[in-house]
């Protein structure tokens, strides 16, 4: 059974104002097949956690570990992490001019699997996944994320999740900016990927809305760079009613 472990993670980021400590000792264990929701107010470090797992060069790990089945993830390059089975669905996917979705997907699939996918099944898989995500066929020939609406970009992220079949996926505010129809489509995509590959999910969100469609096993509340509280799905219900006020967010931020 695959497991992703985060131990006492401290992360800094360089800003114009100097070095800032964003994560201040995060501990998390995600087993394959589990859904962990990370919830928290703006600026609490949720996205930093996502990008640190993926290996974005902007973030510096000053203490702690990330282990994938005991392997040190922090020693891996960005692409090695992806090939090891980690996936980050980005909040703001970038445009890649001149690179079509088809070409991109095939290149990524070949890199992840170490060999080119069989032409016949691959074309069918792509078509099927796109149709499931209610993406028009024309998407395949468009350049990656170029001129995509917010909702189209998120669908494109989940399309990759379905096709690349990682062991663990971090979804960074995949729900933000989606209307309810798109939210359902995207959530169904995540649930399908769960059902077919049994992946583990770290679902980062500001709102409880997406948790109506993707049921978390665990909920962690992030405040000021560490986990302030954790529990089961009932914690999400409580947040829905009470918001983040009881965590003294302002106080925690002021203490920085």
């Amino acid at each position: 059974m695959s497991v992703l472990e985060i131990k006492n993670l401290h992360v800094n980021v360089e800003t114009d104002q100097g070095t800032r400590e964003i994560l201040r000792g995060v501990d998390l264990v995600i087993n394959k097949g589990e859904i962990h929701a990370i919830m928290g107010p703006n600026g609490s470090g949720k996205s930093t956690l996502a990008y640190t797992i993926a290996g974005h060069p902007k973030y510096t790990v000053v203490q702690g570990e990330i282990l994938l089945d005991g392997e040190n993830v922090l020693e891996m390059t960005v692409d090695e992490r992806a090939r090891a089975g980690l996936f980050l669905a980005m909040q703001y996917p970038v445009e890649i001019p001149g690179v079509t979705v088809t070409n991109f997907l095939r290149t990524a699939k070949t890199a992840i699997d170490g060999q080119a996918p069989s032409v016949r099944t691959w074309v069918k898989d792509v078509r099927e996944s796109m149709s499931n995500l209610k993406m028009d066929k024309a998407f395949a020939e468009r350049n990656v994320n170029e001129g995509f609406s917010g909702g189209e970009k998120k669908r494109n992220e989940i399309l990759q999740l379905e096709l690349l079949k990682p062991n663990f996926a971090v979804l960074d505010e995949t729900d933000s900016g989606l209307d309810v129809d798109a939210l359902k489509v995207v959530s169904e995509g995540v649930n399908r990927a769960m059902a077919s590959t049994g992946l583990g999910v770290l679902l980062i969100t500001h709102y409880t809305r997406i948790l109506r469609y993707i049921k978390p096993d665990f909920v962690h509340v992030f405040v000021a760079g560490r986990i302030a509280e954790q529990g089961g799905p009932e914690l999400a219900d409580r947040l829905e009613e009470e918001g983040y006020d009881r965590y003294n967010v302002a106080e925690a931020a002021a203490a920085e």
């Binding site: 692409d79 996936f87 970038v94 890649i96 001019p97 991109f104 290149t107």
Partner: peptide
């Protein structure tokens, strides 16, 4: 950021660079 996006999908750095440059010139 383009490089990070492609590498986060498992694509090696040299190939990711090629994709971006070829994409830029392909117009």
């Amino acid at each position: 950021e383009q490089l990070f996006y492609l590498m986060a999908r498992g694509i090696r750095e040299d190939e990711a660079r090629r994709l971006v440059v070829r994409g830029f010139l392909t117009e």
